[in-house]
Amino acid sequence: MKLISMTDFVLEQHNWSPTQVRFDNEFSNKRFRSVVSKYANFLKQPLTLGMFVPCDDDGNVLDKFIHIVDGKTSSDFKQAKSKVLFNTDIQYDKHIIYFKSKETYQRVEYNTLTDRFFFGLKTIEDCIHLHLDLAVSF
């Protein structure tokens, strides 16, 4: 699923596939409200580096070749990778995230001292224009 605007998501849910059986209107309305509410709350989440690349609990980027000497294991990496929200070809180098978007590579800068992104990216919703693929579905 692509990261899309709230308006597009509501319209998409409203036009829910007619091939799916709807037992009654009450069920459809509850499902609609539930899924739209979940997506709205999802979009309002503050962005973290761990949404783009695997990070430990302290926000440090984990490499897939983790040294056990550092106290990290491959299971730590797998757990961190499962928390990544964007299923896009992403590379991280120091404080810059590179990702493929519409056949070109774009970059997003991240300030590790303040744990903030540059260019006004504060929430997941702020990333809609980047055309990212989501690793989660609704």
Rank of each mutant, 00 (worst) to 15 (best):
M1K: 13
M1T: 13
K2C: 00
L3E: 06
I4S: 06
D8G: 07
D8S: 10
V10G: 00
E12Q: 10
H14D: 04
N15D: 09
N15V: 03
P18A: 07
T19N: 12
Q20Y: 08
V21P: 00
V21C: 01
R22L: 07
R22T: 09
R22E: 12
F23V: 12
F23N: 09
F23T: 10
D24A: 08
D24K: 06
N25Q: 09
R31S: 13
R31F: 15
R31M: 14
F32A: 03
F32Q: 06
F32S: 06
R33T: 09
R33K: 13
R33M: 11
R33I: 08
S34D: 07
S34A: 05
V35T: 13
V35N: 09
K38P: 00
K38W: 05
Y39V: 11
A40Q: 10
N41T: 08
N41G: 13
L43Q: 07
L43S: 05
K44E: 13
P46W: 01
L49K: 03
G50S: 11
M51F: 09
V53S: 03
V53E: 03
V53Q: 04
P54S: 07
C55R: 01
G59A: 10
V61P: 12
L62C: 00
D63Y: 02
F65Q: 02
F65V: 00
I68M: 12
I68H: 14
V69G: 04
G71M: 01
G71I: 02
K72D: 03
T73H: 09
T73R: 11
S74G: 08
S75T: 07
S75R: 07
D76N: 12
D76K: 02
K78A: 09
K78P: 01
K78R: 12
Q79R: 11
Q79V: 06
Q79S: 10
A80S: 12
K81C: 00
V84Y: 00
V84I: 00
L85W: 04
L85R: 03
F86R: 09
F86V: 12
N87R: 07
T88Q: 14
D89W: 06
D89L: 13
Y92A: 14
D93S: 14
K94H: 15
K94P: 05
H95G: 15
H95N: 15
H95R: 08
I96E: 15
I97D: 10
F99L: 13
K100P: 03
S101H: 03
T104H: 09
Y105G: 01
Q106E: 15
Q106T: 11
Q106D: 14
R107G: 13
R107F: 13
V108Q: 11
E109V: 13
Y110R: 08
Y110N: 10
N111D: 15
N111R: 02
L113M: 02
T114W: 00
R116T: 12
R116N: 05
R116G: 01
F119L: 05
L121N: 09
K122E: 14
K122I: 10
T123N: 06
T123E: 07
I124H: 04
E125K: 11
E125C: 03
D126N: 07
I128F: 00
L130N: 05
L130F: 07
H131E: 15
H131I: 13
L132C: 10
L132H: 08
D133R: 01
V136P: 03
V136Y: 05
V136S: 04
F138G: 04
